[in-house]
């Protein structure tokens, strides 16, 4: 737990303190190397949004068997005798979770809770996270990728559409930032 004394300073137990983050540029170089490895080994860039999307298709198939195969978008993912989760990006998404978990444990950064500004309610923050998630899930399918597949991977291949996506993400983010600023107010 993130124990702090009344002055807001870290407690004396230094062993329990999170390690500092990496230099962002070093992290960027290593992330670039990971992306390059993905290009050279898989022949495709990184991807994250396909993982939850496949899980959505899988859940929908569990709840409404037969519906997914007939549906307009997920229907193209259905292959007889093959699970919807049997897809390389689902495995990559699982890898991201375990890689993150490994690093968070080593970095002593596992801090259960709802991250928000002190002046903002937890339930309001969760509502924003949920709504943001729905938008992100929808937009990732529309654009055929997210910050990983389009912005990072497509950007590194200098693909016009991916670069347009990257600019649009920043445009959309900066336009909406003012309206949701209070969630980070302390």
């Amino acid at each position: 737990m993130n124990r702090t004394n009344p002055e807001g300073l870290p407690s004396a137990d230094l062993d329990n303190q999170p390690l500092p983050y990496w230099n962002p540029y070093v992290a960027g170089l290593l992330l670039g190397a990971t992306l390059l490895a993905s290009f050279l080994v898989l022949g495709a860039g990184l991807g994250a949004s396909a993982g939850p999307a496949r899980m959505g298709a899988f859940l929908e198939q569990c709840i409404l068997p037969g519906h997914v195969a007939k549906s307009d978008y997920f229907g193209h993912w259905v292959e007889e005798g093959k699970s919807l989760l049997n897809y390389y990006l689902v495995f990559m998404f699982a890898g991201v979770f375990f890689g993150g978990l490994f690093s968070a444990i080593l970095g002593r950064r596992i801090r259960p809770g709802v991250e928000r500004g002190k002046a903002f309610g937890a339930s309001s923050r969760l509502l924003l996270a949920l709504c943001g998630g729905v938008l992100v899930g929808f937009a990732s399918r529309l654009a055929n990728g997210c910050t990983s597949g389009q912005a990072l991977s497509g950007g590194a291949m200098l693909l016009n559409g991916s670069l347009a996506f990257m600019l649009s993400v920043f445009a959309g983010g900066y336009l909406a930032a003012w309206f949701v600023r209070r969630q980070w107010n302390d």
Partner: peptide, 13 residues
């Protein structure tokens, strides 16, 4: 369109 929506969702969440 996807990028704009994504950006809004990104900053909200």
């Amino acid at each position: 369109a996807g990028g704009l929506l994504f950006g809004v969702g990104f900053v909200m969440s």
